[in-house]
Amino acid sequence: MIDLTVNGAAARVDVDPATPLLYVLRDDLHLHAAKFGCGLGQCGACTVLVDDRPVFSCLMPVGAIGTRKVTTVEGLGTAAKPGDVQRAFLHEQAAQCGYCIPGMMTRAEGLLRKTTTPTEYAMRTAMAPSLCRCGTHMRILRAVRRAAVMRGGGVVDAAEPVT
């Protein structure tokens, strides 16, 4: 048995400790925000936060999590009451097909938990491990800039103003 804390709630799963966290989230805990993209840590669709740090859940053995807290997009807000990162993504209409967006949002959340005043370069570097095939990067970056402002900070040398 493996004990986890996911989105603030305790969970107990009966799986092999080498099982990727992604499978546990989707199959055992029925949290479907994190997506299976490549399964190789190359695309970022499966990104979740483990103790505030973005990780590829497809390469995260569930047995390695220990007491660290897992956060998925479900933990950032609800459809009725979206969190500020989610609201920023909605405002900028950052999703095209949407498959990468949960990874993008958790990655943005991880960045903003570290600092609400990143540089443009730091923001882009932080977001780079997540890929978007539709090409909505400019909107995604706008959404992250907006979310930083909503958190009381802002990208210090923003390439575009938040309007």
Partner: peptide
């Protein structure tokens, strides 16, 4: 070995 299996083996 278990960590390798979950984090590294897939590649």
């Amino acid at each position: 070995a278990r960590l390798y299996e979950g984090a590294c083996a897939v590649c």
